[in-house]
């Protein structure tokens, strides 16, 4: 029987034994008893192993007051492999890139224009001619349409720099970037022609906004970079780096 259980019986003997076993209930019971006895010996070993593990475990638990099991993770911190952290970094980078892309995609020229536009404020120390005084008072009163009626019949080339700036801003207030562009570019030409430095900061800013509204990204970027680069520029803080990147991105697509 032991040889049968140990697997040391020859094939022929094994076959004979199995045939006998199939018909002999007593033999089956004896075999069962031996198998059970072997399991009992094994279980005795298991019992001793469990006893030792438990002893060690409780000892560790006593030495480590902060001990917690898996149910409340804390003990035996799993050492995260480098690949794990690389994956985390990659996931964070991809998320940031995704969010940035979404931001940039949503941030087109008109959006930047909407976000950055501020109404022009007339400086208190202006010395103005009569015509300029009229436009100024209409501008202050918000009578933008009447400003254009007031200059009706006058050629754009004959308008002063102050008038062009006010009219350009009035056009922006009336949501007409295209009209604004004509006045502001005219102002730019005068400035280039005369070498005057008047209103150069205002011109940079409102012309940049106008280009953004008209989605002329190339010209807008040039002005935005110029404004941001010059820390003393009056409008240097009005455009952010993200605005600048959004414009660049728009140029790419």
């Amino acid at each position: 029987m032991l040889n049968y259980l140990n697997g040391t019986l020859g094939e022929e003997d094994r076959s004979i034994f199995e045939k006998e076993k199939a018909h002999d209930k007593e033999l089956q019971e004896r075999l069962e008893l031996i198998e059970f006895t072997i399991r009992a010996v094994k279980m005795n070993g298991n019992k001793e192993t469990i006893r030792r593990v438990q002893q060690e475990f409780i000892q560790e638990k006593l030495e480590n007051k902060n001990f917690t099991g898996i149910a409340t993770p804390g003990i035996e911190k799993k050492k995260m492999p480098v690949i794990f952290w690389l994956k985390i970094i990659a996931a964070v980078s991809i998320t940031c890139l995704f969010l940035f892309t979404i931001y940039v995609l949503r941030n087109d020229g008109p959006s930047v224009y909407e976000a950055r536009y501020i109404s022009y404020e007339i400086a208190a120390d202006w010395t103005l001619s009569t015509q300029e005084n009229l436009l100024e008072s209409l501008f202050i009163q918000g009578e933008f349409r009447q400003m254009f009626q007031a200059i009706a019949g006058r050629e754009r080339e004959r308008l002063s720099a102050t008038e062009l700036l006010l009219l350009g801003n009035a056009a922006l207030e009336l949501d007409s970037a295209r009209a604004s562009l004509a006045y502001l570019e005219q102002l730019g030409e005068i400035r280039d022609h005369t070498g005057s430095d008047d209103f150069h900061e205002e011109l940079d800013f409102y012309l940049a906004l106008t280009y953004l509204e008209l989605e002329n990204y190339h010209k807008a970027l040039h002005l935005v970079e110029k404004i941001r680069k010059n820390e003393t520029h009056r409008y240097s803080n009005n455009f952010s780096l993200l605005d600048q990147l959004s414009i660049k991105f728009r140029m790419l697509i």
Binding site: V53, Q54, F57, K61, T68, G69, I70, A71, T72, I75, E76
Partner: peptide
């Protein structure tokens, strides 16, 4: 088994 379930 002890680490995972002793506490519960």
């Amino acid at each position: 088994l002890y680490i995972g379930y002793y506490q519960s």
